[in-house]
Amino acid sequence: MSEHKGSMNRVYGWLLLLPAMVFLTAFTYYPMVSTFFVSLFSDGTATRPSVFVGLENYQFLLEDDIFWKVLVNNLWYAAGTIPTSIAIALMMAIWVNNRLPARGLVRMAYFTPTVLPMIAVANIWLFFYTPEIGLFDQIGSVFGFPSQNWLGDPELVLGSIIVMTVWKEAGFFMIFYLAALQSLSPELEEAAHLEGASRWYIFRRITFPLLMPTTLFVTINAVINSVKMVDHLFILTKGGPDNASSLLLYYIFEVAFSFLDEAYASALTVVLLVVLAIVAVGQFTLMDKRIHYR
């Protein structure tokens, strides 16, 4: 018998699926659809019920300077975190995969940020970034650098946020590279070595191309993270100064739960969903399907 067939089994298959589907419908599919509908109505109050306004919320969105600022910030945040964390992750994986004294300890050190809550480590980083007494300024002063207001200066704040995010993510991505490196056959590298190829050449022409599926997988993860990792903003900056470090999801949170404008928050959420849809389409066209989803 190959697979369960027949009408009885067909019903059984759906029955097994039903509980998960109920939850997914209630908390993923339904909200996706209703977000779109809510975004077409005005925000109702006790005295003024919500009415259909068509694309008015989106018109407002196009004219909202904060929205554009936050969107651009998010692009910089993605551009700053994705390549850097992936490059560091790859470097870490290669180091930890080689013979290295105290390898276990080093691997544990790299991985530690992954098991720590963002919100908790943000407390520590807040201290690191404090002007004058903070760690960065204390180290800087040894080398004669002036004190910086890392989180208060609009020019520096997004960079400071990016540095912390890279620290948090890199060790997590390292794991995927490490797993991939361990599955590569060592003969390839040995053969290349015997041919007199340099390490850099071996990496560039053999290892890196073979790691491509992992790189794509990690990139998708990094893109998703650049959309949803906003926890540290609550501790470090609250999006400030003057929205210089605010990101799209954080802005949605503010609009929905501080300014209590559900309709506009829904329009912003639709933008976020569209961004993720583009990423998803990109993933399926880019990614060799047999590698991760078969």
Binding site: M32, L249, I252, T269, L272
Partner: peptide
Amino acid sequence: IMPEVLIVE
């Protein structure tokens, strides 16, 4: 589309 994205709804 993880739950984080759908906080409003």
